[in-house]
Computed example of a mutant assay.
Amino acid sequence: MGHINMEDLQDFVSVPVEVAILDEHGGEKAPFVIKTIKRLGLCPDQTHLRIYFDDVYFLAVPLDSKVRKTNLEWSAIDAGGNLHYKIRKVRENE
């Protein structure tokens, strides 16, 4: 488990993904939604990674979050906010 590296998310850009924010116990705060990540960037104060779904809407994940990545899923755990961000590739059979 490491900290956020934008390169780790490049495999998830421009492909359909499911995105969710979970609580510290893995329960959903909101349901998974299907999105396409358009681009990645840093917030102005360089504390969060912005994951853009279009030119306006983005998900901001603290850079000091602990990250796990597989070929199909990227997840980050924000210890300060007790939130778990999950991005997973949409399987073609679904």
Rank of each mutant, 00 (worst) to 15 (best):
M1L: 12
G2N: 14
H3Y: 15
H3S: 11
I4L: 15
N5Q: 14
N5H: 11
N5M: 10
M6G: 03
M6E: 14
M6C: 05
M6D: 08
E7W: 04
Q10M: 13
D11Y: 06
V13I: 13
V13A: 03
S14G: 04
P16I: 05
V17I: 13
E18G: 04
A20W: 06
I21M: 11
D23F: 10
E24Y: 10
H25T: 03
H25F: 14
G26A: 11
G27L: 13
G27I: 10
E28R: 12
K29R: 15
A30W: 09
A30N: 12
F32P: 10
F32Q: 09
F32D: 04
I34C: 06
I37V: 13
K38Y: 00
K38F: 00
R39P: 02
R39D: 06
R39L: 03
L40P: 04
L42R: 07
L42G: 02
C43V: 02
P44C: 03
H48Q: 11
H48N: 14
R50W: 07
R50I: 03
R50L: 12
I51G: 05
Y52S: 05
Y52G: 05
Y52A: 07
D54F: 09
D54C: 06
D55F: 06
V56T: 13
F58K: 06
F58A: 07
A60C: 06
A60W: 02
A60F: 03
V61G: 04
L63M: 13
L63W: 07
D64Y: 05
S65T: 09
K66P: 01
V67C: 13
K69T: 11
L72T: 14
L72M: 11
E73G: 03
W74M: 04
S75C: 10
S75N: 14
A76G: 15
A76M: 05
I77P: 00
I77Q: 05
I77C: 00
I77V: 13
D78V: 01
D78C: 12
A79P: 00
A79R: 05
A79T: 00
G80A: 08
G80L: 10
G81S: 02
G81T: 07
N82K: 09
L83E: 08
L83K: 08
K86W: 00
K86C: 06
K89Y: 01
V90E: 01
R91E: 08
E92A: 03
E92G: 00
N93E: 08
E94N: 01
